[in-house]
Design a protein around this nucleic acid. Structure first.
Lengths: 347, 347
DNA sequence: TTGTAGGCGTTATCAC
DNA sequence: GTGATAACGCCTACAA
C-alpha cells in the first residue's frame, strides 16, 4: 500500500453532509462566536464527535491569514536558563491558543539564519529570539517579515523591534566590583574558548572593564571548552587552576555550572574556598545554592524574561491594541547573591 | 476585502510576474528537483532574492498534504533529562527538513490530551510522546490520526504504535538489589507526593518489589513535593531525614536532583555519607558525578532515546520503506554507576 | 521546458 | 440562521 493513498482524514465537507447542512454551518458551529441556532450546533457537534473530526488548522490559517504560531529561538536546550525561559514563555503563550514554534541555534549565527528562514515559512505571527548579534541576512529577513520581533536576554545596540533583557556586561561589571570590594585582587575569569557569539563575551568584557577601572590587571583570562560550559569543564580547569596563573585568589566563572565544577576540583585538592580562592558564578542555578560552600552568583530570573516576552507578544497580537501605546524596551532585573564561596553572605 | 489590512507578503504570483514566467515555473525553480532550464532558474532565483520572497509553507503543505511537522511531547522542560532527549531528537529530525512541534504536558494527563488534539490540528506526519498512561480519548485520537505514534521512556503494556524506552520499574528494582547487596537494609525511597502519572511511580514499584523479594520491608516511603523533584525538595527532606523514619540507613531518590539535595543536607548536619547513610539517585545528571561524595545512580542516556526515536520517525516517513520491515520496539540500555555515596566505587 | 486548469480544507462575504 | 461562492498560496496532473 503506497503512502499516497493514505485513507485521508474526515473533512468538514463530510461532516456537513452527514449533518445535512453546509460546510459554513459546521464551521460556525465549531467556533464559539458562530451564529448558529442552538439545535443545529448541538446536532453538528454530536456528529463531529462521532466522526472524530479534527479540523485542519493549516487550511484554516491559509484562509484567515493567521497561523497561530509564535516562533521562538533559544541558543540551547541543554542550558537550564533557556529551558526555564522557554517554559515560562510557552505557558503564557499557550493560554491564548497560540502555539510555540521552537528552534535552537546551538550558539551559531548561521544556524540562526537558517532557522529564522525556515520559521518564517510557517508565517508566525511574532518571533522571539536571543540577541547576540545576527547576520545581515537574518536582520533583513526579520525586518521584512512584517511581524513583531522580540530580542531577548541582552540590550541590543540597535534593536530590531522590541527588547526584553538586561546588560550582561553591566551585570558582570558589578559582580566584579563586589569581588574586588571583598578584597580579591588576582581575579581570574573563566569562559569558553570560542565565546564570540555568546552572552559570555559580554560578561567577559564587563569583568575586564571593572578590573581596569579599579586599577587591577584583567589578564587572568582562562578559556576552556565550548559553550555552554559544563560542570566538567569547570572541574577540569579547577584541577589545574594555578597552572594557568599561579597567583589566582578568586575565579569568576561565566556560569554557575563551571563554578560548581571548579569548586569540586578545589575541594578535592584541599584548596580552601573561600579562604585560599574565592569562586563566583553567573545565573543562579539551583545547584549553586545547595553546594558546600554555596556559590556567589549573579541572579537573573529566566522565567521573568519568558513571561514578559510572552505578555508582550500577546498584547501586540491582540486586536484591541494601538501600536503606539506599547513600549519597546523591557529591562529585566538583576541582583547579586554573595554567598559562602566568596567569604561573605547576604542571602 | 477587509481581511486585515496587513501589508501582505510577496507571493509566488508576484515573483512570477516579475520574472515573466508562470507560478509553476517559479515553484519548480525553487525546488532542487524541478525541471527548469538553468537560465530560467537563475533568473527566477535572482528575483526571488531581490524581492525577499519567502514561500508560504502552509499553502504548500495544504497542497502536498505533507505538513513537515513531527509533534513531540515531553513532560517538562525543567528536567534536564527531557531537555537532552529533545535536543537529540530535534537535531536528527531537522537535518531531514522536518520541524518539531513541541508541547509539554507538565505531568498531567488532561493537559496531554489537550496538547495532542491541538497538535493534530496541524497535521503532523508523526508524533512522539512520553508514556505514563494516556486518557482514553488521547488513545482514540492517536489511533485515528493515521500517523506513526512513538511512545517514549517506558515499555507500555499496550503500545499504540512504536516504542523507544526501558522499564523504569526493572531499573529501579536492580538498583535496589545493588543497594541491598552493599549491606543496606533500612532503605527509604524518596518520591513525589503525587507521582501517579509519572515515571516515578514505576520506580517506586520497582523499589518495593525488590525489597520484598529480598525479604525486607519497603515501608520507608517518603513523599514530598511535586514532580519534577528539585534539589531543594531533597534538601528539605534531608534536613529531617530521621524524623520520617529513625532507622534509615540508605535513601534511594527518584532522581539525582533530590539526591544531591539530600546529600547537602546530610553533610550540613554532620551525618556521614555513605557510612551513616547511603544515598542513591536516578538519571545520571552531571551534578551527581562531581558532587562530594559522588552519587550512585541509574544511568540512562536521554540523548539515546531522542536519537533512536528520531531515526525511527525519519525511516517511517521516508518513501522507500515498506511498513512490515520496521520493528515496533526499541529498548534503550540502562546501566548502574555505583559511586562514593553508597560506599563502593565501580565507575 | 513551460503553461493551464483545478483542487487542497477552511473561512470571509454577501445574499436569502 | 443558513448557504453559495470566491478566495487563501501553493502544488499535482496534464497538456502544449
Amino acid at each position: 500500500m503506497n503512502r499516497k493513498d493514505k485513507p485521508s482524514l474526515v473533512t468538514m465537507e463530510e461532516v456537513a453532509k452527514a449533518a445535512g447542512v453546509s460546510r459554513m454551518t459546521v464551521s460556525r458551529a465549531l467556533r464559539k462566536d458562530g451564529a448558529v441556532s442552538a439545535s443545529t450546533r448541538e446536532r453538528v457537534l454530536k456528529i463531529v464527535n462521532k466522526m472524530n473530526y479534527v479540523p485542519d488548522q493549516m487550511a484554516g490559517s491559509l484562509s484567515t491569514k493567521k497561523s497561530g504560531f509564535v516562533a521562538t529561538l533559544i541558543p540551547s536546550l541543554n542550558n537550564v536558563h533557556y529551558a526555564k525561559m522557554l517554559q515560562a514563555l510557552t505557558e503564557s503563550i499557550e493560554t491564548t491558543g497560540l502555539q510555540v514554534l521552537l528552534g535552537h541555534t546551538d550558539y551559531s549565527m548561521s544556524r540562526e539564519e537558517e532557522l529564522v528562514e525556515s520559521m518564517l515559512k510557517r508565517r508566525p505571527e511574532a518571533i522571539a529570539l536571543p540577541y547576540d548579534g545576527h547576520t545581515a541576512r537574518t536582520i533583513k529577513l526579520l525586518k521584512q517579515a512584517q511581524i513583531p520581533v522580540v530580542e531577548l536576554w541582552e540590550l541590543p545596540p540597535k534593536p530590531i523591534g522590541y527588547t526584553v533583557g538586561f546588560s550582561n556586561e553591566q551585570a558582570s561589571y558589578e559582580m566584579t566590583e563586589r569581588l574586588i570590594k571583598l578584597g580579591y585582587r588576582h581575579i581570574a575569569f573563566l569562559c569558553e574558548t570560542n565565546d564570540e557569539w555568546t552572552r559570555g563575551s559580554a560578561r567577559r568584557l564587563g569583568f575586564t572593564r571593572a578590573m581596569e577601572d579599579a586599577g587591577l590587571s584583567a589578564h587572568r583570562m582562562i578559556r576552556y571548552g565550548n559553550p555552554p560550559m559544563s560542570i566538567k569543564d569547570g572541574y577540569d580547569v579547577g584541577k589545574n587552576l594555578h597552572q594557568y596563573f599561579p597567583d589566582i585568589d578568586c575565579i569568576f566563572c561565566v556560569s554557575d555550572s563551571p563554578a560548581f565544577g571548579v569548586l569540586t576540583a578545589l575541594r578535592e585538592k584541599g584548596i580552601q574556598v573561600p579562604t585560599d580562592v574565592g569562586v563566583a558564578g553567573f545565573g543562579n542555578f539551583e545547584v549553586s545554592r545547595y553546594s558546600i560552600p554555596s556559590i556567589s552568583t549573579v541572579k537573573v530570573d529566566p522565567a521573568e524574561v519568558g513571561r514578559v516576552a510572552a505578555e508582550l507578544v500577546v498584547r501586540l497580537l491582540s486586536d484591541e491594541q494601538t501600536d503606539k501605546a506599547i513600549a519597546k524596551k523591557y529591562p529585566v532585573s538583576v541582583t547579586f547573591s554573595m554567598r559562602d564561596s566568596t567569604g561573605a553572605r547576604s542571602d
